[in-house]
């Protein structure tokens, strides 16, 4: 038996919206430690890693670790049946092999309870070991600013160059019709009065050129949190981390370009 209760369905709805453009089907792992998933996009250029810790749920029970395969488009449709403020219960019974994942949504005044279930699927997916790394540069910035920059530069070109120095981070793109760039200067302290401030921890200047279509997908996670951190080292995948308050994170990894 697995059973996880989230105080607000809206968090899970936003998570699925953040993932479904990049990934159509994924295995979800349930364990004593919580719920996690790792999946690559169909081209194996981007990797997504979600973690929801057990103690971030209103209640959490997992008698035996289970891996359940879901179609994220179907899950997204199902979650549209939940009110944002509904309490959401996810449960599955593994006595005879789980073939469906069940959801119940209870309104704040407890007067309405709806129940839905999602058929599970067998998914044979490659998984990778993500090494712990010290990055050369970590940019911490507003997630809405990140979304805006990606949207603005997508009107100019197909790739963005992200150049991080001690002074700031510059996003630039060029295409047939022209070019554009946005420079965000490093602020010494990110406090409550400067929600849009950017801070950069850096050992040495780093630059990456990345496809904007993947970053547009990653930006779908912006509604989950006010901040995003971009972790960069030359010649290794760039990691974009969106922390989900009190419960976990979504991390996206994007493979860099390599010399032919």
């Amino acid at each position: 038996m697995i059973e996880a209760v989230l105080a607000q369905a809206s968090i899970f709805k936003k998570i699925v919206e953040a993932l479904k453009e990049l990934i159509s089907e994924t295995n979800i792992d349930f364990s004593e430690a919580g719920i996690s998933l790792q999946a690559m996009d169909s081209s194996h250029i981007a990797l997504c890693n979600l973690l929801l810790r057990d103690d971030g749920f209103k209640s959490y029970r997992c008698d035996r670790a289970l891996t359940l395969g879901v179609n994220l488009n179907s899950l997204s449709k199902l979650l549209k049946c939940a009110g944002n403020d509904d309490e959401m219960r996810i449960f599955a019974n593994d006595d005879s092999g789980a073939d469906q994942l069940n959801f119940s949504f209870e309104s704040a005044n407890s007067e309405r309870v709806s129940e839905f279930s999602l058929k599970l699927m067998d998914i044979d997916a490659d998984s990778v070991d993500i090494p712990d790394m010290d990055y050369q540069a970590i940019i911490d910035m507003s997630s809405s600013e990140f979304s805006r920059i990606i949207r603005d530069l997508s009107s100019v070109g197909e790739a963005v160059s992200i150049d991080a120095t001690k002074q700031g981070v510059k996003f630039s793109s060029a295409g047939d019709a022209g070019k554009g760039s946005i420079l965000l200067k490093h602020q010494k302290s990110v406090d409550g009065d400067s929600a849009l401030a950017t801070s950069i921890e850096i050992n040495e200047p780093v630059s990456h050129s990345l496809a904007l279509k993947f970053l547009s997908s990653f930006a779908k996670a912006a509604p989950l949190t006010d901040r995003v951190s971009i972790h960069m080292t030359e010649d290794v995948p760039v990691m974009f981390e969106f922390k989900i308050s009190e419960i976990g994170h979504i991390r996206f990894y994007l493979a860099p370009q390599i010399d032919d």
């Binding site: 194996h44 250029i45 990778v128 990894y253 493979a255 370009q257 010399d259």
Partner: peptide, 14 residues
């Protein structure tokens, strides 16, 4: 010339 890398070229398959 540069080509787009894949995740599996950087992280070992688990």
């Amino acid at each position: 010339a540069q080509a787009q890398g894949k995740i599996g070229e950087f992280f070992p398959l688990g």
